[in-house]
């Protein structure tokens, strides 16, 4: 009985569904939109021009494998030019640089380095370096004393962001870096 019912049903279904079956059994690659998987902080020492990159990487997005996070190591009493880079590396063959978009839509984005003052680091940025917006994608960091601690990089999104308050807007990135200033 069970066999008869199942085979009758199968026949009926196969006849009717075969038209779109191709689309079902052969799905394309997922298309996650505007996911940021990677943050690079690229530090250039103003004195020596030495370049150091510290990263947060989570290629499979939220869930799945755990992210990898670098600890930041800086020299005291130094000046660094810092460039933040935001990438979508979900598909290694098609890495998307989202930094440009953040700069283009600088009016709707904001970046903060929350807790950085506790490390005695002075961060300043010039809108001229950031497509005319007060969004510190490119900034200058001045370290002073030796410190150990952490700060949180926040990327916020809100139409017409005030660029004053880091609690404002929706969080696109919230990443903490352990930092040692030696």
């Amino acid at each position: 009985m069970k066999q008869i019912i199942l085979s009758l049903t199968s026949l009926f279904i196969i006849l009717s569904i075969s038209s779109c079956k191709e689309d079902i059994v052969d799905p394309p690659v997922d298309n996650e939109q505007e996911v940021i998987t990677t943050v690079h902080l690229i530090f250039t020492d103003s004195a020596s021009s030495a370049v150091d990159t510290f990263s947060f990487m989570d290629a499979d997005g939220p869930g799945g494998a755990d992210p990898t996070i670098d600890s930041i190591l800086l020299n005291s009493n130094s000046t660094y030019f810092v460039e933040a880079q935001f990438l979508n590396e979900q598909d290694p063959n098609d890495v998307e640089d989202i930094t440009e978009e953040i700069l283009e839509e600088g009016a709707d984005h904001h970046i903060c380095f929350d807790g950085i003052v506790n490390l005695n680091v002075d961060v300043s940025s010039d809108p001229a370096d950031n497509n005319g917006f007060p969004v510190p994608v490119n900034s200058t960091w001045r370290t002073s004393t030796s410190e150990t601690g952490s700060f949180t990089l926040l990327l916020k999104h809100k139409e017409g962001h005030s660029h004053q308050d880091c609690n404002e807007g929706e969080t696109d990135v919230e990443v903490s870096f352990n930092t040692k200033i030696d």
């Binding site: 009985m1 019912i5 009758l8 049903t9 196969i14 569904i17 079902i24 394309p28 996650e32 939109q33």
Partner: peptide, 27 residues
Amino acid sequence: GVNMQGQGNIYRGSYFIPNYLRIEAAP
């Protein structure tokens, strides 16, 4: 009586559930 059903699901965009084919029968 009997209920019979065949179903196909297709997704596009971000992943939430996979595509599937499902056949059901219930006397």
